[in-house]
Simulated assay, not measured.
Amino acid sequence: MIRFCSLGSGSAGNALVVEIGATRLLVDCGFSVQELERRLARVDLAPRDLTAVLITHEHADHIGAAGPLSRRYDLTVFTSPGTRLAARDDGFAHVQEIQADAPLDIDDAWVCPFTVPHDSREPTQFALSDGDHRLVLMTDAGHISPHMVAMASGADALLLECNHDPAMLAAGRYPASLKRRIGGGYGHLPNHAATELLRNIDQSRLRHVIGMHLSTDNNDEALARAALADGLGCTPSDVDIATQDQGFCWRTTAPA
């Protein structure tokens, strides 16, 4: 069984907790140590309960205070060599470099990093498994690649970016250069790309799909829900969305 919850998802900070057996992993640490402590307490956890930290890439809303957190609580950080080199603070208490498509075991958890097209040094997203079920985190990608489709296929839970609505982005207040970055092939996934991915994967085991990393300025929750529902063939009310302030509460891959 895999148990998981988000502590917050969006451009102001991202953090996900994944429990597999006795192993508890923090995926990204896009908050200050104090804010992360507060958000962990909200789900009845503390940093000392964590086994390790996985970092997807070096952007501040993902790497945040991973360095200070690692040093304060003597945690190992798993990340790609490129992310480590690009980090402003890579003074981790312990670090293990990972390679895309090279699975590794972290105690009870099987972890497979995989590449996505994003404008960072060496980004990875993660598939995590207990041997029977698989959770896939898929955010911070500018477009859908065949490899992403393959990684998402057959998952039990998929945490999928729905960053922006292209029309809202085009009409919004962001400068032209930022609009080009977000909407480009190495920026962030628009709603319709999430629909496309879902239509192209094997959904036979899929029990959880949660929209992630919504822009507060360039998206609307109703639009993201509709896009995911379109890809899943369900109603928008059946779809969950992670928020910046609350993330989402505990979910499990165990049968209902």
Rank of each mutant, 00 (worst) to 15 (best):
A254Q: 13
W110Q: 14
V149A: 10
P113A: 01
I106T: 01
V77P: 03
N218Y: 09
V111Y: 04
Q244G: 09
N191K: 09
G183K: 02
R71P: 14
T83I: 02
T56W: 05
H213S: 11
R38Q: 14
I55N: 10
R3D: 15
G30Y: 08
R251A: 07
V116H: 05
T243Q: 07
E196N: 09
E122K: 11
H59E: 02
V209S: 06
H164S: 00
G233T: 04
P113M: 02
E122M: 13
A46H: 10
I144C: 11
A226T: 12
E35S: 08
A227T: 06
L40V: 00
A150Y: 12
R181Y: 12
N163V: 07
Y186F: 15
P146C: 10
L40G: 04
E37I: 06
K179M: 03
H143Q: 11
A15P: 00
L137N: 12
L169P: 03
H213V: 11
K179E: 03
L50R: 08
A66R: 01
T115Y: 12
L69R: 05
T253H: 12
P117K: 02
N200G: 06
A170D: 12
L36G: 03
T76S: 12
A150K: 14
L85K: 14
E37N: 09
D245V: 07
R88H: 09
R225F: 01
S153F: 03
I55R: 13
R84L: 15
P175Y: 07
A254E: 13
F31C: 08
Q246D: 15
A65W: 01
L16I: 07
A15E: 00
I210R: 00
L206I: 04
A66K: 02
G21M: 09
T79N: 09
C234Y: 13
Q96A: 13
A242C: 07
F78D: 04
V111G: 05
G154D: 02
